[in-house]
């Protein structure tokens, strides 16, 4: 018996493994700045700031090593009437958004994701808290998924 959240009878669709690189590159920049700061502080023998930045850099490096698992944990499924979305290992989160509630679907591409041919889909409902973004989809998939979702939302249109 596990304490984790698990939904029965769901086969999750996963995002592209290439999305790991997007996360890695954006994470690396910050980590490298901190590591550099640690080196500078240590060479100046400023031990208090050096130990502080060292601790933060270690946390960030551990965080970087977890990225592949975190990306694997992102999943979604198109059920008959709603979109199911999950993410997180330590902090798990599942969201179910009925198609009829979608107000609009955004496609965003950052520079790194674009270089790898990936897109991010963002679903907006009337509630601000839902916050469902589906990163790391191959461009063609993302466009197809958007069109599919818009069509589904149209056929199941509900008021507010």
């Amino acid at each position: 018996m596990t304490n984790r959240l698990e939904l029965a009878d769901i086969t999750w669709r996963r995002v592209s493994p290439k999305f790991v690189w997007v996360e890695l590159v954006s994470g690396l920049v910050g980590t490298m700045v901190l590591v550099a700061a640690t080196v500078v502080f240590a060479s100046l023998q400023l031990w208090w700031p050096a130990s502080a930045t060292a601790v933060v850099s270690i946390i960030m490096i551990v965080n970087l090593t977890l990225i592949p698992r975190r990306v694997r944990a992102i999943g979604y499924q198109l059920r008959e009437d709603d979109l199911l979305f999950k993410r997180g290992i330590m902090w798990q989160r599942f969201v179910a958004v009925p198609y009829g509630r979608m107000q609009l679907v955004d496609i965003n591409r950052g520079p790194i994701a674009r270089a790898l041919g990936l897109s991010e889909l963002k679903f907006v409902t009337a509630a601000a808290a839902a916050g469902v973004t589906l990163p790391g989809l191959p461009e063609a998939d993302a466009d197809a998924l958007r069109d599919e979702l818009v069509a589904l939302a149209e056929s199941r249109r509900a008021g507010l």
Partner: peptide, 26 residues
């Protein structure tokens, strides 16, 4: 109801608990 979410952090997991959110216009 706009959407529904269920969440669990490490603390809640240790106690075999979870958190639910009902999303409406905020």
């Amino acid at each position: 109801l706009q959407s529904v979410a269920i969440e669990q952090g490490p603390l809640l997991r240790a106690l075999r608990l979870a958190r639910i959110e009902l999303h409406t216009v905020t």
